[in-house]
Amino acid sequence: MWKFIVRRLLIALPQILLLSVLVFLMAQMMPGDALSGLIDPNIDPAAIEAQRERLGLNDPWHIQYVDWITGVVTEGDLGRSFRYKMDVTEIIGQRLTNTFWLSLVTLIFTYLIAIPLGITSGRYNDTFRDQMITGYTYVGFATPLFIFALVALWILGFQFGWFPTGGSVSPGLTPGTFEYFLSRLHHLILPALSMALITTVNTVQYLRSEIIDTKQKDFIITARAKGASESRVYNRHILRNSLLPIAAFFGFEITGLIGGTIFVETIYSYPGMGQLFVESINLRDYSVVTAVVLLLGIASILGALLSDIILSLVDPRIRIK
């Protein structure tokens, strides 16, 4: 077991390294550097040049990379935003919490929807109920998240006015109070639900085919032949085999969630990482962009790592690869 974990780590570490190189090279390709945002255009170009030399901006890229990555790792130095005139780490802090809550609530919704639908659809396959659920997944596959989120906002936010149409909390509330918490939740539900309703169709379909497959396996037929009740067959045998892998998939979902938050946060003007990313790109605030890509990239690498490890605990066959 630990062998698999070590081997999997040996894959993840170079991935993180490679990601950092890629992000660094992207940052190099971006117009402007740490100085262009900082320095007053009236200063003598020779002075700027001297400053560049002193900061190592004229060094070859691999030396600059080593400088940069050392700063990131040892001091958490992700650079300064020229727009906010503050350290990137500070800007990201609040945004990251917001995105974390959005992702968490989305994941909860995803599983809350997927598990009952998947089980119903798999257990009673080819009945009317199953056809309804399959129809939903069919439509869900064909609907881009951003269109669904737009329509949801238009109907539930603007036409019916049931949900706020932007922000993460109503203004004027004190953090820590119950009203504050409720308001945050209220702001979260629509973005999270619209994301969950679309991303969950994968899981529903996976669970359905998984259950239908397991239903026909010999050990299930044996269990039935031994006289186990139908609910026992499902709870003890089928679900145990089908649900665990799905629970482990959440790590893989992270990559998808990151993509989703970009759309959802933009549409609902929710102040998270996705919105920050789009804003910063549009304002050419590249040190923020670099930091966001690096952090979220690492998050998805770690997510996949976690899922792989959990899956290998659940399903020994995976370890063999």
Binding site: L19, L296, G297
Partner: peptide, 14 residues
Amino acid sequence: DFFIILPFLMIVIV
């Protein structure tokens, strides 16, 4: 594996 793990949308946008 490396390409799959990349946050596709962000990288493309950049």
